[in-house]
Each structure stands twice: as structure tokens, then as C-alpha cells.
Design a binder for these strands. Structure first.
Lengths: 336, 336
DNA sequence: TTGCGATATGTAAAGCATTACATCTAATAT
DNA sequence: ATATTAGATGTAATGCTTTACATATCGCAA
């Protein structure tokens, strides 16, 4: 009972002190041009003096609008997602929106629970970094959604991401151009659309180069441990690749660290290409050749699209493809 | 105008269909024990059938409670913060709270704006990962706040973090124990409390070991670039250290990458100790010896404390110190 | 039989801002 | 001079839920 003595001032308090109606106060604050210079000043003064701030709940209730974007992601702590998040946050803030974070841990029940925030008015729309959406298609259409990075299969949800097939093709092609023939692919998580797309791009490049015979996809995943495990598994087989296209930089780093601990020299013995160009890729040993995709930009674009969707200023929702680029560093070199 | 035909059902709709009053519906959902078995079932059925979900704004308005925690951080994309965030999210979810993220970019105006969410009922309390709080002390006391990692100086705000002085002392001592004498410190960002505490711990260890003469603090910072820059600057001086205690793992990595590119061998020529034990530290070359602090746990503890604070179930707010531990890896070795 | 407590439910107020509609003044047009 | 319009402000309804208080029923004790 320290300091909760004073209640928060309400719009009526301000109205009374300023000798105007609540309507005028509301207008002075929301649409100043509707109010005379003089009253405006009076109201502002009272507001400043009382420290009045419009109750958001009342506003939300009345306007049936939360000015909040729900962001569903499997793991906030993962830098890949948190950078997208930062792009989202930026645009949301620009448009006076806030973001509500939901960590799904990849669980369907959590995802469903969190989507409840769209039905109870807590949020106006959602950004899905999740890949999965465990609700019926007809329910989906009544929600404002945009998916990022990983598209949601078979669902009519606008999407922002890179052209994964092309990117993967380029990564593979780069290794082929360097003279490697036995190029294999450490693929992403099973069931993930990106995984399929990257496998596809990889296979296209191999095929075009007439290297189908050497084509080999090793299931890996996106995490550090996935990369280490895949490397370990590879070493137990009799497959001896010249080069590997990895599903992510993180997985690539995991693989490299494993290979190095087994005495292999990267890139002398084995060239590696990653995916994402996260911060550390440049200072890794060896610095990672990778495909850069601007995660921040994806977040920004998606947030803009969602806001358009919510405001109805968006026509037919379209998919957006953001640029990617091959970043050449030291982890992939000419075949010796 | 695709699908916004049906309005969301309200509690009155449910009440009507279930032939009870809204009060009963509310009770059936909030305090089932107050309602007879039978009515309870009837209500649940109608709810299931209509897909009713209580409007959050109305609830917030009535209860004057948002069940939301505001999290203020300088940079979501930074893994250091996002891991704390993940701990916060976990605990918040357990307690049916959601989190509202605010990226301050370290700007005071942004911070102030965001804190407005505590005054307009949008959030019930805030977690500060920010270090600074640009508001008057008497205003602070009327808010529910908990600071994490970096304490807020001169403000009566409960805090969750590690014993930075001790941790820094241990890191330094470790290098001394390895036989290094010219141990210097790449310190953190200016004005940051952690920076001061770590400098203090470093100096204490040096002094205790009778090595004041070699004591040397080089302003660095917490980022990769800070680390690189500090390394570059060091190489221009005539200081030739045996070992360096860095302000963060990230800065340490920056420094190492710079040193390596100048032909130095780490750890042969120079031992390095970092701070934080982020994910990559283990696979860096060389793997980084560092001080581990559980960021997730800090987030969890802080969230619990804040919730206690909000619910009034907390007595005097106390500070919480979470454990830290020296993790020995290859970046720091015996003085040759 | 009367009265009391427990249990179940209903009525209606309260919480706060926005906004459709009404009202009033003053200025401009005819 | 009168009609019309624009501008400024007020009144009161509205959004939806929770909850204090009131009412009703039933069983059981006195």
C-alpha cells in the first residue's frame, strides 16, 4: 500500500478540469483539428498537469481494435527468428502498433491457444514464423495472417520469404563452379517446407550439371546439434563428398566443428556452404560462404503487409519475395 | 468484405442461448465452482458451439488488469537479450500472462513512450533489460518494475542478475592462475553498471595478486565490432598483454578474429576469457573460456518476481543473484 | 413451524473512451 | 434580411465483461 493512493485520472477528470465535455477532450487528443486552438491548449494543459493517459482497454473495447500484432514463433532465443522479430517490431512501432510475442515451441496446442488472441480482440492479426497452422482452412480465412520465411503449405496465407529453390540452386551451383562434383546436401528439418524447397534447388543444380549420380541428401536440421550429428553420421558412411550445402549457417557451423574435431581441414578437405548469413558467419573459422537473406527486411515487409491487410488497404494479398545473395567467404574454395 | 460477416458472439449471446444470465456465464467460465454442475455443462456446450471467447479488452477494462508484462530491451535481435526474453516468456505463459515487447534502441524517448503502457493499463509491470530509466525516482516507485542483468543505478528497483564483481574477479584470477601476469581488461560500454562492476572485479583480482602494475583497462564494449576495434587499437599501442578479460563473448570473438587476422595465434600468443557463454562460444575457434550466466534463468526469476510484485504477494522486493560459473575451454591456456 | 445458512442465479452498475447525433454560434451567400 | 453552411461543442449511447448486491430455493436445526 505504498503509492496506489491516487487513482489514474480519466477522461472525465480532464473534461471537468478543462470545463469541456469528454467528447471534446477525446477530440482534442485524437483529432486536434476538430477543436479550436484555445480549447486545444486548455485540454493539453490539463492533460500535462494531471498526467492523463487514455485507458487502452477502453479504447480497444470501443474501437474493436487492439493495434497489436501477434507474432508466433517456435523459439524467440534463436537469432534467426529474433532478427525477423526486430524488423517486425520496427514497422509495428512506426504504425503505432505493439507486438505480442508467442513462443510456440513448435507445439500445436500452444499455437492454437495463442491464436485465440485474434478471436478475443487481443490482437488484430498474426505473423507466423512457424510453418504449421493447426486450424481448419475455413477458419483461417477469417483471420488476418501473414507467414514469414517458411510458407504454410496448402493454406491461402500470404507469405514473405526468399526464393528458396533458387537460392539453394545458386549455393549448389557455386560449389559446382568451384570444381566440386561430389556435392551433397545436409537438408533441413523434416516436414518443413523450406527443407523441401532447398532439396529441390539442390537437385536441380546437380541435375543440370549432370551430377545426379553424386546427388545425395542427408537429413540434418537447422540447429548446431543437428549439424554436428549429421557430420558424425556422415563420417560413419562411406560417402566422401567434395562439398556440402547445409540447411543453415548454424548447422554448417555444427558440422564444421565436428569435422574439425575429427581432423578434417575445412575448406581444404571439404568445402561448405551455409544458409542465412547470421552475424557469426563472418568470424567463424573458416568464415562461412553462405546465402544471405535479410531477415530484418522479411520482418518489415511482412509487418507492412499484415497492417495493410488489417486496415483493408491491401488488395489481393500477394506473396513477397525478398532478395537473397551468395556471400563468398573462405569455407568454400576451388577443388584442389 | 470476404468473411467479416459474422460478428463475434458476446457473453449475452451465450447467456441467451443457455437460458441463463450473463453473470452465470461469466461465473461458469471464471469460477466454475460457483455454478451447478448442470448449468456449467449447458454453458460449456453453448460456448463450444458458438466459439465464444471473452473479449479481452472488456475484461481488462473491468478488472483494471492487463495480464501483460512489458519487456524493455535495447535490441531484440541480440541473442543475449533474446535468451532472457525466452525465460520471461516461459514464466509469463505459465501464469497466463502475455508479454509486450519494446525495443528501445537505447533511446530515452522510446523508453519513456514504452513505459506509457504501464500508465494506460496496457501492461501491469515492466522488466527492464535496459540499464537506464529516464524518469524521476518518485514516479518509479508508483510503477511495478524489475531490472535484469544490468541494475539501474540509484533507483529503488529490485534486480535480478549475477554477481558481476565476483564473476569478473574469477575470470581474472583464472588467467592469473594460469601464470599470466600482464592481464588486461577489455571493458564494456561506458556508463553501463556492469562495466564498472567488471572493472572492479578485475582490479580486485589484479591487486590481490600484486599485479597492479600490469593492470590496464581498455574501453571496448559488448559488440563484435567493439571487440575488433579494441583489438586494433591495442595493437597500435606498445602494450603487450599475456591475456585479456573481455566484457562479453561477442566482444571476445571480435577481438580474436582481429588478432588472428593480424597473425597472432590465440591462445598461444594470447589467452582470452569472455563473458556470458553464448551458444557459439563452444564452437568458436578457439572455443572460448568464459563465465556462464544463465540468461534464461535470469528471465524466469525476474518474471516471477515481477508477477509477485504485481499480485502483491511479494514482501519487500529483494535483489536476486543467479549463479555464474567459469567454463574452461581452449582460449585460455597456461603461460608458456 | 420458523428461521438460518448455504447454494444457485439474476439484476444492474461500473469500468473508460469513442462517436453518432444534436445543438448552437457565427459567418457567408442570396 | 434571411437562408445556409461550416465550425465548435455537448449529450448520451455504445462496446463487453465482471461483480456487488439482491433474490430465490432448499435443507436442516431449533
Amino acid at each position: 500500500m505504498t503509492s496506489r493512493t491516487k487513482k489514474r485520472p480519466t477522461i472525465s477528470d480532464v473534461a471537468r478540469l478543462a470545463n469541456v465535455s469528454t467528447a471534446t477532450v477525446s477530440r482534442a487528443l485524437q483529432n486536434p483539428e476538430l477543436v479550436s486552438q484555445q480549447t486545444r491548449k486548455t485540454v493539453y494543459d490539463v492533460v500535462a498537469q494531471t498526467g492523463y493517459r487514455a485507458n487502452k482497454a477502453a479504447k480497444m473495447l470501443r474501437q474493436n481494435r487492439a493495434n497489436t500484432l501477434l507474432v508466433l514463433l517456435p523459439d524467440i532465443a534463436n537469432p534467426f527468428f529474433s532478427e525477423i522479430l526486430s524488423g517486425i517490431e520496427e514497422v509495428a512501432t512506426e504504425h503505432n502498433n505493439t507486438i505480442l510475442i508467442g513462443n510456440t515451441n513448435g507445439e500445436d496446442t500452444r499455437t492454437k491457444d495463442l491464436l485465440g488472441n485474434l478471436r478475443n480482440g487481443r490482437a488484430d492479426g498474426a505473423l507466423l514464423l512457424n510453418g504449421k497452422l493447426p486450424i481448419a482452412t475455413d477458419e483461417i480465412t477469417s483471420l488476418k495472417l501473414v507467414s514469414i520465411s517458411e510458407a504454410i503449405s496448402d493454406a491461402p496465407i500470404p507469405h514473405v520469404g526468399t526464393d528458396s529453390v533458387a537460392a539453394s540452386r545458386e549455393a549448389t551451383q557455386h560449389l559446382i563452379d568451384l570444381g566440386h562434383r561430389r556435392v551433397i546436401h545436409f537438408s533441413g528439418q523434416q516436414g518443413n517446407i523450406l527443407t523441401e524447397q532447398r532439396i529441390k534447388g539442390y537437385q536441380e543444380a546437380m541435375q543440370t550439371a549432370g551430377l545426379e549420380a553424386y546427388s545425395q541428401v542427408i537429413p540434418c536440421g537447422f540447429t548446431l546439434k543437428n549439424g554436428q550429428a549429421a557430420a558424425t553420421r556422415l563420417l560413419k558412411t562411406n560417402i566422401v563428398p567434395d562439398a556440402i550445402v547445409c540447411a543453415s549457417d548454424i548447422a554448417a557451423m555444427g558440422a564444421v566443428s565436428e569435422f574439425k574435431s575429427r581432423g578434417l581441414d575445412i575448406p581444404q578437405d571439404l568445402s561448405i556452404v551455409g544458409f542465412d548469413d547470421i552475424d557469426f558467419s563472418g568470424i567463424f573459422s573458416p568464415p562461412l560462404t553462405t546465402i544471405r537473406q535479410s531477415r530484418k527486411e522479411m520482418g518489415q515487409q511482412a509487418a507492412r503487409m499484415l497492417l495493410g491487410h488489417i486496415n483493408g488497404t491491401l488488395g489481393e494479398p500477394e506473396n513477397i519475395t525478398v532478395e537473397h545473395r551468395l556471400i563468398q567467404r573462405a569455407s568454400a574454395i576451388k577443388k584442389s
